[in-house]
Design a protein around this nucleic acid. Structure first.
Length: 568
RNA sequence: GAACCAUUAGCUCAGUGGAUAGAGUGCUAGACUUCGAAUCUAGGCGCCGGGGGUUCGAAUCCCUCAUGGUUCACCA
């Protein structure tokens, strides 16, 4: 029985003018469970019946009287409050969860649809730093959520492996690339390449012609100059090796590494198509698409020297992806500063006549800053992502040797918990918020944190192991009608909505908030209600609840990209 | 100058137009010879940035102002 549906049916039977959908719309969840489990506010009836809402609520609740599956129906002021029968409720939720196992939070909305998630996308030859954590982890979670919902998913790392900056690097290397430098790059690629990049930028101040040389070399790269291409390939390889260390730690895998360079030979077609559709205008030797009539600034498509830009490559990429994957959604997890770029880009695709422009989604997020100001690679104000993970693991190792020194595979668990803490923290708030990176906060393991949830999970594992009995859904559900157990079950019921919310809004934090709340309810239950008790009936029922919580926590953590260690 | 985003407890943040605006943290006091104390319990007088408006009802929707952030042509 669906309790909400039942409440809606009651209202349609009381008033033939109300449709079932309208009735469902009216149903609310009271702020406190003391007020019931479902509520219908009666303000809207007051005009029709020409009575005060509170009087209507009272009359309606008396008219409804006793209903099958509900403990009671009563009014509180202008609300008609429904209290579910706790035993029936427990039976319904736990039997469903038992049958569906780790699919309990899923629906089949994604069946037969392909979704692309582009995320992380660091620039090669540059540090993989704390600023990249957001796209990397938000994107990874969204990818997992869509996969869980039954979509075919394609994870793309749109590497920043093209553009004038590589002209700079090639030019710099040709000027200063002594054998010592080559060796240094092989040994420690990112910092050494970064040094070249910084030096080049500094020398542009005194040698303005370097700017043109960089553009020249990038143009040569686009034209397929062998020397330029060879250097570029080398920069790309050594950088990827570095990035993969971090992706491995996060357990992130990609289906495609088609970065900007991949589209270098697909740009000419885009430009000629824009020409054909008469969208391009000449402006100071460059080519633009005018967008002012749509409330946007004009978009530069081709530079005056003939080379292309970011937006051109993104148009080519979108067209390629539509052709290759025939996506249902094409999701870009990229920071809010690039909103204008994506608005222009989507508008241009729309102007080209492609209806699928509306299936392209920019999932944006706020900016990370450091305590002493904005991140600034060239000024050395940078926190490496790998260092953050290492420190988190280090701290976890200390805590483990302090509290659980005999733990097996301590290293593995320290990794799972330390990295889990970082992931959880990142996915805990609304994406749009800017935040300041803080070591204290990242390394805090108490309260609403990843380790708290993982600890709760380990606790369920330990209980299930200790009890050591076969668990099935043939239990006496009347055991689970006390307040603490009921609150856990109500929370379990909300899992599907949390996952669906994250799916609809591209917001993993609904799941993060959900799982911490579930862990809290379970911990309260644990402290109030002994689980492994003599009474076999009580024990079995409470263990079924424990097992359900166990499965849901693990599923939720996996959707966030976290591991769930059984001991910690 | 224009556009977009943000503003809720000391701090970090939740809050689908509905009932008394909630968590965590910090602080104070308690709970381990008993299922894991990375846990739990108790303690909150907040001009929900200001001002208007819409509504039976606004932290939530609209307008306006303020503050902070971001972006606005040859970087990505």
């Amino acid at each position: 029985m669906d309790f909400k549906q039942k409440v809606a049916e009651i209202f349609t039977s009381l008033d033939d003018e109300i449709t079932i959908d309208e009735a469902i719309q009216m149903i609310e969840v009271p702020p406190s469970s003391d007020m019931g489990d479902y509520a219908v506010p009666c303000f809207k009836f007051s005009k029709k019946y020409r009575k005060a809402p509170a009087i209507i609520a009272k009359e309606l609740s008396e008219k409804i009287g006793q209903v099958d599956g509900f403990e009671k129906v009563e009014n509180a002021g202008p609300y008609v409050n429904f209290f579910v029968d706790k035993k029936h409720f427990a039976e319904k939720i736990l039997k469903q969860a038992y049958a569906e196992k780790d699919k309990f939070g899923s629906t089949n909305v994604g069946e037969g649809k392909t979704v692309i998630v582009e995320f992380s996308s660091p620039n090669i030859a540059k540090p993989f730093h704390i600023g990249h954590i957001r796209s990397t982890l938000i994107g990874n979670s969204i990818h997992k959520i869509y996969t869980y919902m039954g979509y075919n998913t394609v994870a793309i790392n749109h590497l920043g492996d093209y553009g004038t900056q590589f002209g700079m690097l090639i030019s710099a290397y040709k000027k200063w690339g002594t054998p010592e430098i080559v060796e240094a790059i092989e040994k420690d690629p990112i910092p050494e390449l970064l040094k070249l990049y910084i030096r080049y930028n500094q020398e542009i101040e005194t040698h303005p012609e370097y700017q043109d040389e960089a553009r020249y070399w990038f143009k040569e790269l686009e034209n397929g100059n062998e020397e330029a291409h060879k250097l570029w390939t080398w920069f790309r390889e050594v950088s990827l090796k570095e990035f993969n260390r971090v992706y491995d730690m996060f357990g992130i895998k990609y289906d495609s590494l088609a970065g900007e360079s991949f589209y270098s030979d697909k740009m000419a077609d885009v430009i000629s198509e824009l020409e054909d559709k008469q969208l391009l205008k000449d402006s100071e030797g460059a080519k633009i698409v005018e967008l002012s009539e749509y409330g946007l600034t004009d978009a530069l498509i081709q530079k005056s020297d003939g080379s292309t830009l970011y937006v051109t490559r993104d148009i080519a990429a979108a067209m390629y992806r539509k052709k290759t994957y025939d996506f249902y959604k094409n999701i870009y997890v990229v920071g809010a500063p690039q909103k204008l770029h994506f608005d222009q880009w989507r508008k241009i695709i729309e102007l080209m006549g492609y209806e699928w422009a509306e299936d392209c989604v920019h999932v944006m997020f706020g900016t990370v800053s450091l305590e002493d100001g904005a991140l600034a690679t060239r000024k050395g104000r940078v926190v490496f992502l790998e260092d953050v993970l290492k420190k988190a693991i280090e701290k976890t190792t200390e805590i483990i040797s302090d509290r659980n020194p005999n733990l097996d595979n301590r290293e593995e668990v320290a990794k799972q918990v330390g990295i889990g803490a970082v992931i959880f923290q990142e996915l805990f708030n609304n994406r749009i918020k800017d935040y300041m990176f803080s070591w204290d906060k990242t390394l805090s393991f108490e309260g609403e944190t990843g380790p708290y949830v993982q600890y709760s999970y380990a606790r369920t594992c330990s209980l299930l192991k200790k009890a050591d009995i076969e668990i099935d859904d043939d239990v006496d559900f009347s055991v689970l009608t006390d307040k603490e157990a009921f609150n856990v079950i109500k929370k379990l019921e909300g899992f599907k909505a949390a996952v669906l919310g994250s799916h609809d809004k591209y917001e993993p934090f609904f799941i993060t908030r959900y799982v911490v709340a579930l862990a809290q309810e379970f911990n309260r239950f644990y402290h109030e209600c002994p689980i492994i008790v003599e009474d076999a009936k009580v024990k079995k029922a409470r263990l079924l609840l424990t097992q359900t919580v166990n499965t849901v926590i693990k599923t939720a953590l996996n959707l966030l990209g976290m591991e769930a260690p059984e001991k910690m």
